[in-house]
């Protein structure tokens, strides 16, 4: 087979896989609806406020309950030093209030 046809075939297969990604995502979402319901039930029954993304620092375990000063309150010259602190920002001051 000509090299150009081999390349077009390879690109075509990659393109088909690429186009199938949204379909796979949709199917996976339908399949995991039960899991999501379970998580939502647990969340509601325990009146939880935060997702468990990381457990290393209080203000990244419960960012919605922390404020912007929390990372610096460990001691008088405390610096924010947890790796997850660079990914998870604490609650922004209320813009949704009156």
């Amino acid at each position: 087979m000509r090299r150009s046809l081999q390349f077009l075939l390879f690109t075509g297969v990659s393109l088909i896989i690429f186009m199938l990604l949204p379909l796979h995502a949709l199917r996976a979402q339908q399949r995991s609806a039960d899991e999501l319901r379970e998580q939502s039930f647990l969340f509601k029954s325990l009146q939880l406020t935060d997702l468990c993304l990381t457990t290393e620092a209080r203000y990244t375990r419960h960012p919605a309950m922390a404020d912007r000063h929390a990372p610096f309150q460990s001691h008088p010259v405390a610096l924010e030093h947890f790796p997850s602190g660079s990914l998870i920002l604490p609650l922004l001051p209320g813009r949704d209030r009156l």
Binding site: T54, F82, S84, S86
Partner: peptide, 8 residues
């Protein structure tokens, strides 16, 4: 990056 120093 998320794990950081977390044990769990």
């Amino acid at each position: 990056a998320l794990k950081g120093w977390s044990v769990i």
